[in-house]
């Protein structure tokens, strides 16, 4: 393309380097801190270091570091996509960026209605963060979404949003909504209110964690099987786990690629649905009209 001048190319390269740099740093950090071991093991997030705090020590774990890596990478990716869009338009990257924006806006509009049209960036951010966190397994890093602390944090954020929109008609209306349709159902309503963030966090974390546990178990079984079959081969050939080459990758297509992206989509969809259904639209309209009439 003729419009590509030097400045554009320089910013482009810098952004690409900044995009890859956090992931590379994460891999280096993992190699440096993990002792080389022969066996396969299932373990949670490793603790890099602890910070002394007044109440209890704050653990800086692998999952926090990795989610920061994802944040930085997604941030530079979203700077890279709209970089250097010409006034006329027509570059391939621009079409891709526009497609992302249009798809999320359509999704939000069809699922949440017109009142919530400003929610598209938030939903896109949740989706990108969740999907890229789960896809971090592809480069061999620990996925932050298989730690309940990270996903629980997102679920609490969504719960605060839901409660905020339920309280739009005032706190008294919110408290009274627990006694609907009959007063003696109040405990059940409270339980189902609390169950919302818990089930959202458990769903996301359970799916990703079960996928990685199953992948590790299959790899372990295949290694033992190939040790059993090929142990009589001469020399170093006997110590190579032939069956472990390639076969676990087939499982990874489902558990890492498909399940990771699907869970991101489901988390975003549930966020939209809970916020949109929790918001009392008709009563809010009525209340606003009476307020306007009173002021006039």
């Amino acid at each position: 393309m003729k419009s590509r001048n030097r400045k554009f190319i320089i910013t482009d390269t810098i952004l690409i380097i900044l995009m890859i740099l956090p992931v590379a740093a994460g891999i280096v950090l993992k190699i440096l801190t993990n002792p080389l071991s022969q066996g396969i093991e299932i373990s949670g997030a490793k603790i890099y270091f602890t910070v002394e705090m007044p109440v209890q020590p704050l653990f800086i774990t692998e999952s926090q570091v990795n989610s920061l890596i994802v944040l930085l990478s997604v941030f530079f990716l979203s700077l890279y996509l709209p970089n250097g869009i010409p006034a006329k338009g027509g570059s391939r990257r621009q079409v891709f960026a526009e497609m992302i924006v249009e798809k999320t806006e359509n999704l939000v509009k069809t699922n949440m209605g017109d009142y919530f049209h400003g929610f598209a960036p938030f939903i896109a951010a949740i989706m990108a963060l969740s999907a890229f966190s789960s896809l971090l397994t592809l480069v061999g890093l620990y996925p932050p979404t298989s730690d309940i602390n990270i996903v629980g944090g997102w679920a609490i954020l969504v719960f605060i949003l839901i409660t905020h929109y339920k309280m739009k008609c005032g706190p008294i209306y919110y408290v009274r909504s627990f006694t609907q349709p009959v007063p003696f159902l109040t405990p059940l309503n409270v339980i189902s209110e609390i169950a919302t963030p818990v089930s959202m966090a458990f769903r996301h974390y359970g799916n990703i964690l079960s996928g990685s546990v199953i992948s590790v178990l299959v790899a372990f079984g295949l290694q033992n099987l190939s040790n059993m079959i090929f142990k009589n081969l001469p020399g170093f050939l006997g110590s190579i786990p032939f069956l472990r080459v390639g076969i676990p990758a087939v499982l990874s297509v489902y558990f890492d690629l498909f399940s990771g992206c699907l869970q991101a989509f489901i988390f975003a969809m549930l966020t939209m649905l809970y916020i949109a259904t929790g918001f009392p639209a008709q009563d809010y309209e009525k209340r606003r009209k009476t307020k306007l009439a009173k002021n006039n």
Binding site: S199, F202, R203, Y205, G206, N207, S210, L262, F265, I266, M269, L270, L273
Partner: peptide, 16 residues
């Protein structure tokens, strides 16, 4: 897919 995700919840509680 949404319905499947909701139906999965009880299984995931057991998994946890």
């Amino acid at each position: 897919l949404m319905g499947c995700a909701i139906a999965e919840t009880t299984g995931l509680y057991a998994l946890v």
